[in-house]
């Protein structure tokens, strides 16, 4: 049962960008939220994001550099995510259930309904996943600052499990065919295009929250703030290597 409703949600479509920029925009929106915003974005080159609490050693940093894959630390918890063929969204709001599980469930309903519009039988899988046919197709993470919630997550379009494993520091004995098969059995892409998912997501947000959608762009001043955040935080080794 969805309880949060909005009169309007601002829609921000920022296209494909580098990992540190994507994380900078999400943080900027979190700390400058006046109205609810749904941001839809992608990645101009592959990137691994690691969770706030993770050790950088989770990632084979040298191999990522060699393979031109960015590495960025998120401001949200959770595990390492290989961002490649996916649609990523972020949602910021000051109006949200205080209960964390409930807030994941209510916001994730937008994704579930979007996937249903695309013919997929999607379900919420606590705490923070969305599954289709028992496989994870969407992972989400939240943080809360100054009475504002940020939830961001990825909707997998296609998945390359072998490449993902090759970039993570998984003990060699665990990179077995069985382990890879195990992940393949638990994670899946939805085989839709970015535009299909983007359109479904916007339509679903309108339906689920009963609101108008108002597209907008970041101002030059806001873009400069994001640039500063990217340069000083998300591109810095101080932040990326902090744990």
């Amino acid at each position: 049962m969805i309880k949060i409703k909005f009169e309007k949600i601002r829609i921000l479509e920022t296209g494909n960008n580098l990992g540190p920029w994507n994380m900078a925009v999400d943080e900027f929106l979190l700390y400058n939220c006046k109205e609810p915003i749904l941001r839809i974005y992608g990645w101009s080159k592959p990137c691994i994001s690691i969770g706030y609490f993770q050790n950088i050693d989770e990632v084979d940093y040298k191999k990522c550099n060699d393979m031109n894959v960015d590495v960025v630390r998120r401001i949200t918890g959770g595990g390492a995510v290989f961002h490649d063929m996916e649609l990523t969204y972020s949602f910021v709001t000051k109006n949200f259930p205080q209960n964390i599980l409930k807030s994941y469930e209510e916001i994730s309903e937008v994704i579930i309904q979007a996937l249903k519009k695309l013919g997929l039988d999607a379900k919420f899988s606590p705490l923070n996943d969305v599954i289709v046919d028992g496989k994870k197709v969407c992972g989400n993470a939240q943080t809360r600052k100054n009475n504002t919630l940020l939830q961001h997550g990825t909707i997998l379009l296609e998945v390359d499990v072998e490449k993902m494993f090759s970039l993570l520091n998984v003990p060699i004995e665990k990179i077995s065919d069985k382990k890879i098969l195990d992940v393949k059995n638990r994670v899946a892409g939805i085989s839709k295009t970015f535009d299909q998912v983007s359109n479904a997501l916007k339509s679903s947000a309108r339906d689920v929250f009963g609101c108008d959608l108002v597209p907008f762009k970041l101002s030059q001043e806001e873009l400069e703030s994001c640039q500063k955040l990217m340069d000083e935080k998300f591109s810095s080794e101080n932040w990326t290597f902090r744990r």
């Binding site: 969770g51 609490f53 993770q54 050790n55 918890g77 959770g78 993470a141 809360r144 600052k145 744990r243």
Partner: peptide
């Protein structure tokens, strides 16, 4: 002591 992993703590800075 350093505690890392893929868990969630709110607020994060408490760790």
């Amino acid at each position: 002591i350093k505690i890392t992993g893929d868990f969630f703590v709110h607020p994060e800075e408490v760790i």
